[in-house]
Design a protein around this nucleic acid. Structure first.
Lengths: 243, 243
DNA sequence: TGTCATCTTATGGTATACCATGATATGGAG
DNA sequence: CTCCATATCATGGTATACCATAAGATGACA
């Protein structure tokens, strides 16, 4: 009976889902600049879908925090939450801390092996030097960490926080001399988990977030003094930004 | 036919916003049962708005976690996250703890006065004995607490968690003998904040969540053994559920 | 020439109509 | 009574049409 060979792909993604993923990715990869207007009708053309679909997608991205509705002007790519970065990093430290702790306390050997594998991929990504790859691999690693810790809700929250500081994260990853310390910090976390030391794992995870936080802070200072960019420019925006 | 009980008057904000708020409230107040199907076109009639509006509202409620899309069946009121309640209460304890701590450490006298006022309202609500009132007043109190602690993001997260255990919360509030302990716990939190003892405030806040958690756990056990309700029944659902 | 009123246009918001598909219910044939 | 064909319904997806408003362009008058 169980012959799946000709079973139809039941998970047929709806057009809206595809459009949603595409848009989310486009925003997170900065194909749209923060602050850039997202005019509905042009978006229909760019995505090749109808306005209804675009509008529903925009509503979802809005509640996800990736898109802001400017009253009287419609949707725009959300600008980063500069006033809340401290709190966001604090929460990340807290949550990633408890995940690492729980993981060290209760992960199975299989789960630890999986974590090792994703960590290896993360190292490869660092070696490649492509920031977007590093970010993706980092996300994968943490996803596995939270999964092993059985903290799915916490993972959803952390993911939500990360979209709000997406720019900061990519800046910290691209920052000079971040590579060696980051790798060392990740190894500390894994070592503590492997040797089943919950407290040490929690501390290591918090340290990792805190060091990223420090980088982000100095990055903010620099861009704050210098060109005062980051807040999204109002000048000529990239317009059609082909998807 | 025309069930005008939740028809909205289009005057101030956008129609979609009004419909969203109305629906959110209706779900949280159990005018729709968990698991109940939310068929689009009937909803249009009940709300008195077009399908576009309903669909966009449903998308938003979906990403907020109040509505689940059942593949091939469309939207339904989300059932509570019974498998995740432990994690949710754990996170609430963590977050309300840090808010209370920060509040005790840095709240101004004005803010403390405001907290006292909301606490007084909460006591009134308990005196009234109306669970929905108690819930509302509790929410107000915590909102003020997080605001005074300058933890807006954390508050958003806690609010999000609360919608996922909305039923549990109303059960714990309605539970017998909850009133006196709850009031005592809240006073402990406020006393610690007033006397500027961050650690004590954090501990008190955590204790409060944990005792609610215990009530919720026993409530779950009872309903689990007993009628096995709570998960939302598939039998005759209330249909038009006059709002 | 400068200011103000008006017109136009772009945009968002809302309402419907339509189609294809998949799920469910119904009712008749065997 | 069972099983299958059909009808019905709900949904996802699309396309339009209409209206209100805000921004920008135009033009008249002081």
């Amino acid at each position: 009976m169980a012959d799946d060979t000709l079973r139809i792909d039941r998970s047929a993604k709806t057009l809206r889902t595809l459009a949603l993923e595409r848009m989310r990715e486009a925003i997170m990869d900065f194909h749209f600049q923060p602050g850039e207007r997202l005019v509905e009708r042009p978006l229909c053309n760019q995505l090749g879908v109808s306005r209804s679909v675009v509008r529903e997608v925009l509503r979802q991205l809005e509640t996800e925090g990736l898109v802001q509705m400017i009253p009287g002007h419609g949707p725009a790519v959300a600008k980063p939450d500069l006033g809340r970065t401290d709190e966001i990093y604090e929460l990340r430290a807290l949550l990633e801390g408890i995940a690492a702790k729980a993981c060290a306390a209760s992960a199975t050997d299989d789960q630890i092996a999986l974590l090792d594998a994703t960590l290896a991929k993360l190292l490869e990504a660092w070696a490649s030097g492509v920031p977007a790859e590093v970010m993706r691999a980092t996300t994968k690693f943490y996803e596995a960490l939270f999964e092993s810790a059985d903290k799915r809700v916490a993972w959803e929250i952390v993911s939500g926080l990360n979209v709000r500081i997406n720019q900061l994260r990519s800046m910290t990853i691209a920052s000079a001399n971040r590579r060696e310390p980051a790798i060392a910090e990740m190894h500390e976390i894994m070592d503590a988990i492997r040797s089943r030391k919950p407290e040490a794992a929690e501390a290591a995870a918090r340290r990792h977030v805190e060091s990223a936080w420090n980088i982000a802070r100095t990055a903010l200072l620099v861009s704050g003094e210098g060109k005062a960019d980051l807040l999204g420019r109002d000048e000529a925006h990239s317009g059609q930004s082909s998807l």
